[in-house]
Each structure stands twice: as C-alpha cells, then as structure tokens.
Amino acid sequence: MLDTPRRGVRTTGLRPRMRVVEYQMYVGRRIWRSVFVVSVLQPLAYVVALGVGLGAIIDTGGHHPLGVSYIQFVAPAFLTAAALQIAAADASYPIMAGFKWIRTFHGMAATPLTPAQICDGQLIFVAIRIALNSAVYLAIMAAFGGTQRWAVLLTVPIATLTAMAFAAPIAALAATIEREGNAFNMVFRFVVTPMFLFSGTFYPISELPHWGQWLAWVTPLWHGTDLARGVAIGGLGAGAAIVHLAYLLAWLVAGVALARWRFCVRVTR
C-alpha cells in the first residue's frame, strides 16, 4: 500500500493567514464587550458634541455655509479619522507585545506559518475590527441624521482602507522597536493628533494657508476623508476619487511590504 498522506498542510494562500486571525478572535472573545462599548461611546460623544453641539452654532437659522448641515459634513470625516486612530493603536502596542512580552509571534514562527503570513494575518484582523467598528459608527451617525444617501455605505470600506494604509507602517514600527515603545507616543502626539486636526476633518482644507494644504495632501487621512465625504455628500469628481484611491493603495502596499520585512527580520534573528 502506498503512503497515505497523514495530513495535507496548506502553506500558501489565505488559509494560513486566517489561522492568525482565528487566534486573535480567541483572545478578543474575552474583551469584545468592552471593545464594543468603546466603539459605540466614542462616535456618540463626537457626533453629539461636535456634530450636534457645534453644528447648532454653524448652521444658524437653517443656513448651511458648507452646503450641507454640519453634522453631515463632519460625520464621514469622523468615521475615517476614528478608523485610522483605532487601527494605529491596534497596530502599535498589541503587535509589539506579540514580539516582546507575550512572544506569540515567535511561537507562531516555529510552526508552518511564515513571518509574512503572521504579519498579514495580524493586519487582516485589525482590518476586520476596523470595518465592524466603522459599521457601528455609521449606524450611530445615521441615527443622528448625519447621512442622507445610500452611497454613504461606501464610507466603511474607504475608512478601512485609509486606516490600514496608516496602520501597516505602524505595524512595521511595532515589529522593529526593542524598547518600551516611547516611539508610539511620539507618533500619536506628533503625527496622529495633528493629522486629525489638519486633514480637513472639521473644515475644508482650502481654509488653511498654502503650506497647510500641502501638508494635508501628504497625509493618507486627508485623502481618505475627502473620499469618504465625497461619497457621503457628493461633489467629488471621478478623477479626484481615483487619485485618492491610488494614493491610499500606494501607502497600503508599501506599508504591508515594510511590515512583512520587519516581521521577518524580528522572528528570524
């Protein structure tokens, strides 16, 4: 009798990557309630405070200086910015811990999983979480009148793409740093927060001085915000939409390549 394969071990394709996602789901099962509460409370606070509160001052007397009500203007931008911030957080300390403290990734590297698969799986998990979070966000905004057309559903994939375009290089950083992660504080203080303030979230970037607009054009967040706002309230040309998408995809591809490389260097040393 010929040798019967005891087991076929699949070493390419999506499946090995989904094993990493499955692991993260297992870990996440214990904390999903608190994660869910945060993902509801945060958009609720932003929408009520800024969309409704600040909106009441801006849209005085039924007049809309931005063409639509202020809540409709900021809602898709909040969605995108929140997605990016949460993804950046998920790609920072949790990934660093997987190398440094819990050492999960080193354990995975001893199995048929390759460093690139471990990296991809980790990023896929973050993307799934961001997509779900964005869907919750969208539902809350809809409840407060922040949306008016079906195309607004596209803001969920747009926000997820924007978030991952920024989170992938953060994951590369998380796989690189050896010390306690002060680098993340720098990134959050000097990159993430300013980006939130100057990427057209609260006002069109045409209000900024010229150099400010240049800065906004460089950030992935402005491209994501402009795209999400475009599908949510209209007024975005196909050419601009394609440029936004291409720019975000370029960040994503470069970021994933960088992250895979750093994962590989870290576990194979």
């Binding site: 394969p5 005891r6 076929g8 071990v9 699949r10």
Partner: peptide
C-alpha cells in the same frame, strides 16, 4: 502542488 503531504509514520 501547494499542499504538502506529510508522510505516514
């Protein structure tokens, strides 16, 4: 081809 067969013990 991408499935690697482990031999029987």
């Amino acid at each position: 081809s991408h499935v690697v067969a482990a031999p029987a013990p």
